[in-house]
Amino acid sequence: MSSLEDPTETEEEKKAPKKKLKGKNNELQERLRSIKIRQGIIGYILRTSRSASIDLKDPTKIIDYAVLSSTTLDAAADLSETFELGEIQNILLEGKDAKILLLKVEDQRLSIFMDRNVDHEKIYRDLGM
């Protein structure tokens, strides 16, 4: 599919991809809202290059989680290059107390924080990945 602009394209048609993306974003936000209320889910951070949407049960940990999430995504990109893993599909970071599922959705970076006993594979599936 070409990304070049078609001169015959109407304004409505030009806006279509944006609308589609917005629709996808709304759908993702909807799914996150339903996941967030589940037992064992600590919260999530959804980042684009320009903004971040953060919803965590314990607001005092926002900076700690944001830094960990950002560092993990950067390190994973580096590790993927080192081990020639190709495009990253998902990352799972497990600690003694909690774990994080990190994903790239379109141009957004999503980190979902949860207790260790939560089924992260189900979360992954429920996000439509």
Binding site: L68, T72, S80, L85, G86, Q89, L93, K96
Partner: peptide, 23 residues
Amino acid sequence: VSEKASPIGGILKLSIAGSNGDL
């Protein structure tokens, strides 16, 4: 990552799934 992992209790496991392989 390890240095920033105290909020989740350190690192027990890090898994990365890629299109060509996993780590």
